[in-house]
Structures are given as structure tokens and as C-alpha cells.
């Protein structure tokens, strides 16, 4: 099967709507198809990978740890927009340290989260072949 560049654009906060969770479910299934997969976190989407999520008070399942498993599925390009963070008073330190292990470099741990500028994000979005928006 042909290889295409798939992009998952996440622009909504988790829990208020189901989009973040069901977006993640697509990404996990898509991993089996051996396509080039990238995730973009723009606008409120950056809250999806905020660290310290605690859903005890709302009775909903905390699915944030699932992002840590993405590396095992060779999904390791999580682009986060710098301006989106800044507009919300956040920095890279507010995000989960999501890592992947590079098979080619003796399983060295590398960060999956890549902070990019808005202009870089525009270029990354433009490179894609199939874009799903959540």
C-alpha cells in the first residue's frame, strides 16, 4: 500500500468535547497502516498534552497517559505551536514529556514533542496529503 503523509490537527481542549479522545483513537488505529503520521496541537489543542491532568473531580477517564504510548506505535512527531502556548500563558514546561525510543540509535530516548512557530506550523500543515481535523 502507498505511503502518505497523514496529519491530525487538534484544536480543542480535552474533556469538554469528545474530539480529543476520539482523535487519539484514530491515531492509534492508523499506526497499524504504516503511514507517515504527524499530530499538530494548535489553539486549545495544546491542553490535550498538558501535564498534571487530573479528572478525579469530573468522573471522566483521564486518557492523557495514552499520548505517552504513541512512541511505541512509531508516532513521534507531535508538533505544538509556540504562539498557541504563549497566548494561553503556557510554556513547553507545562507539557507532558512525551518520548520515543530511536531504534537506529540504540533505543535512545528522544522527545516526541516539537515546539514550532506558527510560520513553521503553516509549512508543516502544507506538506501533508491527508488532514483530519478534530
Amino acid at each position: 500500500m502507498a505511503t502518505k503523509k497523514f496529519m491530525y490537527v487538534n484544536r480543542k481542549a480535552p474533556y469538554g468535547t469528545v474530539y480529543a479522545l476520539e482523535s487519539l483513537e484514530v491515531v492509534l488505529i492508523a499506526a497499524a497502516f504504516e503511514q507517515e503520521v504527524s499530530l499538530a496541537f494548535i489553539d486549545d489543542g495544546v491542553y490535550q498534552i498538558a501535564k498534571g491532568q487530573n479528572t478525579d473531580g469530573i468522573g471522566m477517564k483521564n486518557f492523557s497517559s495514552t499520548y505517552n504510548a504513541l512512541g511505541d506505535y512509531e508516532v513521534n512527531k507531535l508538533y505544538v505551536e509556540k504562539e498557541s502556548l504563549e497566548e494561553r500563558g503556557l510554556t513547553a514546561d507545562d507539557l507532558m514529556p512525551i518520548m520515543w525510543e530511536d531504534e537506529d540509535e540504540d533505543w535512545a530516548e528522544k522527545p516526541s514533542v516539537r515546539i514550532v512557530s506558527r510560520a513553521e506550523m503553516a509549512d508543516i500543515l502544507a506538506e501533508q496529503e491527508v488532514t483530519y481535523s478534530f
Partner: peptide
Amino acid sequence: SGLGQLIEGGIQSDRTVVFG
């Protein structure tokens, strides 16, 4: 059917258009 049907559609089609 499963979510794989969506991904297969993305691979097989010239265009994917999302309505949401």
C-alpha cells in the same frame, strides 16, 4: 466497521474532505 476504513479511504482516495 472499524476506524481502519477511514485510513484506507485516506490512502486510496485522491481527496479526503472532512465535515464537522
